[in-house]
Write a protein that binds this DNA or RNA. Structure first.
Length: 682
DNA sequence: GTAGGGTTAG
């Protein structure tokens, strides 16, 4: 009979070198993101505890690590496959004996062991192998719990892809625990869209969502360096309200900040009003976020009103940050005089300007072309004990870049050196980008070399900028060399890097290599984002591979990502360029069904679709549509209409779009001039 | 607080 109690350390295990997994059997770090409703947040049993020491898990760990590495496929992905395990009847008797020896281990110890194994990437394959093993031998019955622990661990170690795979390979329909674990994994991996998708899926399965899930998604939106997606945010908010869950002060405040950052100050304002109606006092940082959003939208009057309201109620001690938010508004709308007034007001109230204040004002001067005033302000800044740094100069450089004045880069660099400021990585990155954007690859490479000789290690952004500059200039060969060099230097390519390279390969129609790149991306554990999918739709569409393009769009939606306007623009444009006007209009309809408002860009493409298809009447009806929907036709609209007329050989009407354009611009004088001299029309 | 990737005509 096999021993039921745990075995003493066997002779075999004494001879074996201790499996590496053992040394990793430590208490897993407490999860900051686990919600109260998830299994992973239950108090772990320390593996060093007395209870744990009653059992010797070494033989099992040895067995698991060897079995998980022998089936290389599942070990590499750390995902157990349900059909990989043979039924117990065919099992090796040694394994059966091993299983029997653990009969007495209580469930919570299995959970603790699993958590511990799952907390380290090196033992994750063993963790993944443990779950089906426990099921196979009926040693631990709470299969849901086991899977959710694994999913949590995969999510925490940035393997969302694997977590999703695992959840689909788990037996039976997903449980509430699985959903919670997946939502958490998506949220902490920066995929709030997917988390939201799972939230609604969860409800469709009849499970109720709770507060922590919403907090997780919201925090995921707030944590991202990019502004939160307003669409997702609105959905999250209405979803929460439809669940009749009450918002507390913290959640309201987070929503106000999120809506502000998403560039939706109206939504933020109404939430703030609701909070005030409940007698809640918003935090200073919340008000500042909203002020900043209003400023960024150029809504200075409202920003000022909000500023004064909170100032008067003494709820907001206007300090530098609040003034900066206000200042941002004036800088945004180019109201230099008002910006200067805010600056003076700060001085009057003895609120000391910080680097941000100076930066904004310097930005304003640079944008207005007042480089001298900017220089004076830099001096003043120094005198006031605020050391000008590379940041200020980066902003100046960016401002010149955006105005196309890349030649001024050298003057900025000189000025910077005169002020004793050393350019940092950020500054060099902007500089390289500036040169790259204007096709000055030599200068870009020079700046890159200079950066390295200054002892600054290029980062992923540097490499991406440089690689993309070469792609844009058609130097795809050099771009690939740089991509290689990037990796050799030890800099890991990120999603953006792959997006750039995929775009390059797609433009060259090197489809096999493109597919390889996607595989490499996945192998590296990187997820495809909206830009990746849009790039794919664009390159496939442009070369007429519409089937592939549509597949990408579907794959993206299935992954819980919201299709962007750009993605539909790319698709409509692809059809348009080939004169497939029916398909173009169909894609346009799908776009609208997805809740995306038509923009000038997509309507111009639609005109182009009709034009290429010689349907000039329909092309002009798009113009009518624009006018009815308050969309202002632009130069592209009119030139595309002219091209349409040329295509259908209605040369006598080619001038019509020009007249319409001039009329739009209210240039009556020129209109009459053109009408008076119709000979000019050809 | 800053920087990099995807869309329209000629």
């Amino acid at each position: 009979m096999l021993p039921v109690s745990p075995p003493p350390p066997s002779a075999a295990s004494r001879f074996l070198s201790p499996p590496p997994a053992l040394s990793l059997c430590r208490l897993s770090p407490p999860s900051k993101t686990a919600t109260s409703t998830t299994a992973a947040s239950t108090a772990p049993t320390p593996l060093t505890s007395l209870e744990f020491r009653r059992y010797d898990f070494a033989p099992l760990l040895e067995f698991l690590s060897s079995s998980s590495s022998s089936s290389s496929a599942s070990a590499a992905s750390a995902v157990p496959t349900a059909d990989a395990a043979p039924p117990p009847a065919q099992l090796d008797p040694a394994e059966l004996r091993l299983a029997e020896s653990y009969r007495a281990v209580p469930a919570h110890l299995w959970h603790a062991l699993l958590k511990s194994l799952a907390s380290s990437p090196s033992t994750l394959p063993s963790a993944a192998a443990l779950v089906p093993w426990l099921e196979r031998h009926r040693l631990c019955f709470s299969s849901d719990l086991l899977y959710s622990i694994l999913i949590h661990a995969l999510g925490r170690s940035r393997r969302l892809h694997h977590a999703l795979l695992l959840s689909t390979s788990a037996p039976g329909p997903p449980s509430a625990l699985t959903f919670n674990a997946l939502i958490s994994a998506s949220a902490i991996n920066g995929r709030p869209g997917q988390a939201l998708h799972l939230l609604s899926l969860m409800r469709r399965h009849g499970f109720l969502s709770d507060h922590p899930n919403y907090t997780l998604v919201l925090q995921s939106l707030l944590r991202s360096p990019d502004p939160p997606d307003p669409f997702l945010l609105t959905r999250l908010h209405s979803d929460l309200l439809s669940q009749r869950l009450e918002l507390d002060a913290r959640l309201i405040s987070d929503f106000v900040v999120a809506f502000s950052r998403a560039g939706e100050p109206d939504h933020a304002l109404s939430l703030l009003a609701a909070a005030q109606a409940q007698g809640l006092t918003p935090k200073t940082s919340t008000v500042v976020a909203l002020l900043s959003a209003l400023g960024a939208a150029g809504r200075v009057a409202e920003a000022e009103a909000l500023f004064l309201e909170f100032h008067a109620a003494a709820e907001l001690q206007p300090r530098t940050r609040a003034y900066n938010a206000l200042l941002k508004g004036y800088v945004k709308i180019g109201a230099l005089k008002d910006a200067e007034l805010v600056f003076e007001e700060m001085e009057r109230c003895s609120v000391s300007p910080d680097e941000g204040t100076y930066s904004l004002l310097i930005d304003a001067y640079t944008n207005a072309g007042r480089w001298e005033s900017a220089r004076i302000l830099i001096k003043e800044m120094e005198m006031n004990g605020v050391q000008p740094n590379s940041y200020v100069f980066s902003r100046i450089l960016a401002s010149f870049r955006d105005k196309g004045e890349w030649q001024k880069s050298f003057a900025v660099l000189r000025e910077m050196r005169n002020n004793g400021v050393r350019p940092d990585r950020h500054f060099y990155n902007v500089m390289i980008d500036g040169f790259g954007k204007y096709n000055c690859l030599h200068h870009a490479m020079d700046a890159f070399e200079r950066m390295r000789s200054d002892g600054i290690e290029p980062d992923a952004i540097t490499w991406n900028t440089l690689i993309d500059s070469h792609c844009k200039a058609g130097r795809h060969d050099k771009a690939m060399e740089l991509f290689q060099e990037m990796q050799e230097s030890g800099c890991m390519p990120c999603t953006t890097t792959y997006n750039i390279v995929i775009n390059s390969l797609g433009q060259q129609e090197r489809w096999e290599e493109l597919k390889e790149m996607l595989e490499r991306m996945k192998a590296q554990g990187l997820l495809l984002n909206v830009v990746t999918y849009t790039t794919l739709v664009d390159v496939y569409g442009k070369s007429g591979r519409f089937k592939d393009a549509i597949e990408c769009l579907e794959a993206m939606k299935a992954g819980g990502l919201k299709p962007s306007p750009t993605m539909y623009h790319a698709l409509v444009n692809a059809y348009a360029q080939r004169g497939l006007s029916e398909q173009a209009i169909n894609a346009f309809r799908v776009m609208r069904a997805d809740g995306i408002k038509p923009s000038i860009i997509v309507l111009n493409s639609l005109i182009n679709a009709f034009g290429e298809d010689q349907r000039d009447t329909e092309a002009f009806s798009v113009l009518q549509f624009m006018k009815e929907n308050d969309l202002k036709p632009d130069v592209v609209t009119y030139t595309t209409l002219m091209k349409t007329l040329i295509r259908v050989e209605k040369f006598e009407k080619v001038m019509t779009p020009v007249l319409l354009f001039l009329f739009d611009k209210q240039m009556y004088l020129f209109c009459s001039f053109a009408v008076a001299f119709p000979n000019l029309s050809i």
